[in-house]
Amino acid sequence: MSAYVFHVLIMVSIFAILSLSLNIIVGFAGLVSLGHAAFFGIGAYASGLMMIRGMGFVPALFLAGLCTAALGVALALPALRVKDDYLAIVTLGFGIIVVMVLMNLEVTGGPDGLVGIPPAALLGTPLYSKPGFLALTLGFLLVMILSVYALKQSRIGRAWAAIRDNDVTAMFMGINIYYYKMLAFIVSSFWAGLAGSLYAHYTAYINPQTFGMHTSIQILSMVVLGGIGSITGSLLGAALLVVLPEILRPLADYQDIFYGALLVTMMVFRPQGIMGRVKITEIFGKK
């Protein structure tokens, strides 16, 4: 296999982690986030900055995840007071503010971004080879799939499902909806932060533009295309939306037309996504 194929596979696995993490918020807990790329970016910058200052890869990776989760809490504290459309606009605004801060701070290199991020290293050996890095990201993806699956089946997952289906009923059942919604944001932003860290050490260069609204929408498209709430769906959505643009590279300028049309047509004709068994309209019930 050529280096190019490995590159595409690495991007697929990084975006699979991202779409699965967004699926926790959108699919499991029935919330919405339009600023998910900001978490991705915080993880990337946090990890990159820590490693440039001499921290090892493994601690930087996990600290980046924790930093991002902390930011998830900071966003969720005001954001969870509202839902649906309001939550969408608050998370969207959050995404815009994060990019703006990354653009204007000196420590993040402003619009030029962060250059010379050291590569990932395991047991003191830098991972320069693409197959090696792919193994690392796939390893993380596997751990994530297993843990997300376990989470979905657990008491927490059932609480999320109850909140998603009807938050008022869930509240009367004695579920602390604020706590569980917060938990969804924490788990989701932690994984998005890890994905950011992996991305930063893979590309060695990051700039604020990568983590803007375009990427947030791209991740949301993956979740919606694959099927909201479906784990296999998120994986498939990520694979399709990373591989298709590579194949259709000559049409790169029209990518956004495709994403936009995809979201509308999926919502109108197949709201359950490719892998979804139940219509989102049925899951969520009438408003």
């Binding site: 459309d85 969408a88 949301l220 979201l263 709201p271 899951i283």
Partner: peptide, 29 residues
């Protein structure tokens, strides 16, 4: 007609995502 009417009476998340899609579609068009 095309992005909202077919979705009337569904959970707010559905027209929301459709509207976001329409917005991206229109600006890229």
């Amino acid at each position: 007609r095309f992005a909202f009417r077919p979705l009337r009476g569904t959970h707010p998340l559905v027209p929301l995502i459709s509207a976001i899609g329409a917005s991206i579609l229109l600006s890229s068009l």
